[in-house]
Structure formats: structure tokens, C-alpha cells
């Protein structure tokens, strides 16, 4: 039987390729302009990337909030364009699988996983750092686009502009390479964003998925659904032998075997590596009613009595 980890790797690569399949980058339009961009995929993949064929929900959400005042004034009431479409798209996926797209679909997560494979001394992140992503979400994705208004009345998409390393990697650098005329206008801001990207790349070599764990606002939104989603993780304390294998293999440092975190912690990206490694099958993937979704586990060791 093919291991779950191999299936996950295949899905990560296939999905990354699927949403970045606009290979006609040397054509007339520098980016894809078709109808697939109606779709907000629940991953951090910049829609200004020359290869991208779908929309980034964080970019779209900021844009919606940044244009909330002028569009609301223009239409004179009605339902305001406050990111409902984007939140609805994210909610549809997250209420079924929680933060699973982070572990199974996100191209930027995949890049970080590859960087972490480099053989160096590995470092742990402090527990408090996992709360930073909520601050980033509140300030850079919601508050600043809403309240940092330019003279015309439009807000700033501050997360994309000042932080997003995926945007620099997938859109900034490729566009500067493909269109030499843009190099003249790339200034201090691009230098700053390049530094942020370098910092994330270096951090990813020494610690597992640092961006997902500490900064990613999309992960912050999706993680909130982990406790209420249709598909959940269940940790059977009776069966657990407390070997700590799940804690060691977890890419986001979740520790539920000893009760530090919940099995459905907002930090969990549901990569299911803990499910695969557990020697006594104490972890299961279940529905809200407790029915098993995956039944691939065979005990490698005798359970605790």
C-alpha cells in the first residue's frame, strides 16, 4: 500500500502545478486573465504570479477591504463588498477539512518543507510565536487595508505590499526577470520584501515551516476551523503509549500526546504525519460523529493496557 506521506507529497506537487499552469508566460498578457481567477484557492499563491491561474484569498480579501469605502459609496448601499465571497469560499473548504489545505495543497508550504530537508542543526520556535499570525491577520490584512486610506479613499493591501514572501518569490522576482523595464521602478520596497523572503528562506532551513507557524494569515483563518470542521483528528488517550513520536514528526510543533495541545489545535496543518507514525494507531481521522474517514493504520507496537 502507498504510504499516506507519499500520497500527500504527490497531491502537494500536483496541486502546485495545477494552480500554476499558465505556461504561456511569454505571450501578450504577462499573467493569466481567464475565468479560473474567479476561484479563490485556500492556499497562499500570488495571483500576480505569471504562472498562477487562480486567486489568492488573502490578496483578494485585502483588496475587497481596501476598496470597501469607495465601492460602498458608489453603489449607495446594498450588500457591501466586504470579502464575503472570499470568506465564504474559505469557509466552505475549512468547515469540511479545517487547515488541511496548508498541509496538503499549499505551494509555499511545500517550498518550506523542501528547505527544511537541508541537513543542518534544527531549532525550535517558542510557543508564543504561534500567536503572531493572528496579529498579522488583524493588523495587516484587516485593519490597515480598512483604515490606512490614500487621498482618493482607497486602502492599502499592506500584507501583500510589506510582508508576503510568496508574492516576492512567485510574482516579484519572475516579473522583474521577464520584464526588464520594471527593474527601474523596483526600489526600497522591493529590497525590503526581498529581505523578508531571504529571512523566511533561511528560517525554513533551520526550523520547520516558520512562515506557516508564525506569520501566515491564511493559516490563522483556516486554523480557527480545526475544532469545528467536519473532519477532525481524534487522539485516543487509552491506546496512546506516550512515545512522543507524533510530537517529534509534527512540522508545526503540536504536542497533543501529553495534553499540551488539543488534537485539533489551530496550529495543526493536518498533514497526517502523526497518524502515519503512531505505532499503536492512537490517532484517527474521524467525522464529527466519530466515524473513521481513513482506515490505513496498522499497529506496529502493542497498545498501552
Amino acid at each position: 500500500m502507498i504510504s499516506l506521506e507519499r500520497i500527500r507529497r504527490f497531491v502537494q506537487h500536483a496541486f502546485s502545478l495545477l494552480i500554476n499552469s499558465h505556461f504561456y508566460i511569454f505571450g501578450t498578457a504577462p499573467i493569466y486573465q481567464g475565468n479560473l481567477k474567479y476561484v479563490c484557492t485556500p492556499v497562499l499563491n500570488c495571483y500576480s504570479c505569471p504562472l498562477a491561474v487562480t486567486s489568492c484569498p488573502i490578496g483578494a480579501l485585502q483588496s475587497a477591504l481596501a476598496t470597501l469605502r469607495p465601492t460602498f459609496r458608489a453603489v449607495g448601499g446594498g450588500i457591501p463588498q466586504a470579502g464575503l465571497y472570499i470568506l465564504g469560499s474559505l469557509g466552505l473548504v475549512a468547515s469540511v477539512v479545517g487547515r488541511m489545505p496548508c498541509g496538503w495543497l499549499c505551494p509555499f508550504g511545500l517550498i518550506q518543507e523542501y528547505l527544511f530537508k537541508l541537513r543542518t542543526r534544527k531549532l525550535a520556535l517558542p510557543r508564543w510565536s504561534r500567536h503572531v499570525r493572528y496579529v498579522v491577520l488583524a493588523i495587516f490584512v484587516v485593519l490597515l487595508p480598512l483604515f490606512w486610506i490614500d487621498p482618493i479613499g482607497f486602502g492599502e493591501t499592506t500584507f501583500c505590499k510589506f510582508i508576503c514572501p510568496a508574492g516576492t518569490l512567485e510574482a516579484g522576482i519572475p516579473l522583474l526577470s521577464l520584464r526588464p523595464e520594471l527593474r527601474q521602478i523596483a526600489g526600497v520596497l522591493f529590497g525590503w520584501k526581498f529581505l523578508v523572503l531571504v529571512a523566511i528562506v533561511v528560517a525554513s532551513i533551520y526550523t520547520s515551516r516558520p512562515f506557516c507557524r508564525t506569520i501566515c494569515p491564511l493559516g490563522a483563518i483556516l486554523g480557527l476551523f480545526n475544532r469545528v470542521s467536519l473532519v477532525r483528528l481524534h487522539h485516543d488517550k487509552e491506546t496512546c503509549v506516550e512515545c512522543g513520536a507524533c510530537r517529534t514528526i509534527c512540522p508545526t510543533g503540536v504536542s497533543f500526546y501529553d495534553g499540551t495541545d488539543s488534537a485539533n489545535s489551530p496550529s495543526c496543518i493536518r498533514c497526517l504525519r502523526c497518524y502515519s507514525i503512531c505505532p499503536v494507531c492512537a490517532i484517527s481521522v474521524t467525522t464529527e460523529q466519530g466515524r473513521k474517514v481513513i482506515n490505513q493504520c496498522t499497529p506496529k507496537r502493542r497498545a498501552a493496557s
Binding site: P30, N35, L87, G167, T168, G172, L175, I185, F190
Partner: peptide
């Protein structure tokens, strides 16, 4: 939320923003 968003024309706005490059958004 999704239906309300589509009804308010947000899907079209999302498309409109996603098909044009916002240079300042990506740091250029």
C-alpha cells in the same frame, strides 16, 4: 456568505483585481 458575495458582485471584483498586476502590491 458565498452567495451574498456573488450577489453583491464581489466575484467579478475579485476577478478584476486578480487579472491585473498590482505592482505596488508585490513590492515593485
Amino acid at each position: 456568505l458565498l452567495i451574498m458575495g456573488i450577489y453583491s458582485g464581489e466575484a467579478s471584483s475579485t476577478l478584476k483585481k486578480a487579472i491585473s498586476i498590482c505592482l505596488s502590491c508585490i513590492g515593485i
